[in-house]
Amino acid sequence: MSTFTFATVQYESGDWDSAPLVPANLIDSIARYTEIDVAPSGVVVPLGSEAALRYPLLYLTGHLPVRFTAQEKQVLTRFLDRGGLLFVDDHNHDVDGMFHKTVTEELEQVAGVLRKLPNTHPLYSSFFRFEDGPPNTSHELNGWGDNLLHPYLMAAMRGDRIAVLYSNKDYSSEWNFHPDNKRFYSVDNTRFGVNLVVYALTR
């Protein structure tokens, strides 16, 4: 069996566990919309451990400065070279915030330059169709954080595949609620998370 397990990255610096309900919420969405064999709960995996290679899709978030250790950089390099996808979300939703400044610097050292991902990229049609690119979050619409609507996600590529997907949109806040509360939403705001997982599993 090839079960998909949602994995959150634990890194040495920063508050890696700032959005603890995101995994459950996305797992719920995966089960809700697809037949993908998914583990009912997520795992936390240290980035500095070889165990990170067991989870080809990793989720990294936080508010605080991110400085990877040498071991974390080494594992991340192997992870990306072998076909893994790292999804990084700025929980501050602030391009002037320390998470954004530090993590982008660290990622570019390991994965190469982060460039705008065209809104026509297959990521936006890997399951649901997002004609305008990444869906906006309530944090953006409410003017929190950097008070910006970020029209693009950023990505570092390996060939034509996304290796690192970087978001300033604060999906970590947007998706950080108990999945049972999805019933209160007229439109499920986690659908883009389904696209992310399906993209990682099929491309």
């Binding site: 090839s2 919309y33 697809t34 037949e35 064999d37 080809p56 076909g83 399906v198 599993l201 099929t202």
Partner: peptide
């Protein structure tokens, strides 16, 4: 089925130079 095994088999074959058609089942009739 959509999953790591199918993804990485297709990737391995494509990288080895095979022309590959795929059908990854995601949901009923999808």
């Amino acid at each position: 089925n959509a999953g790591w095994e199918g993804k990485f088999i297709a990737a391995a074959l494509e990288e080895a130079g095979w022309r590959v058609d795929v059908r990854f089942a995601v949901a009923p009739r999808v």
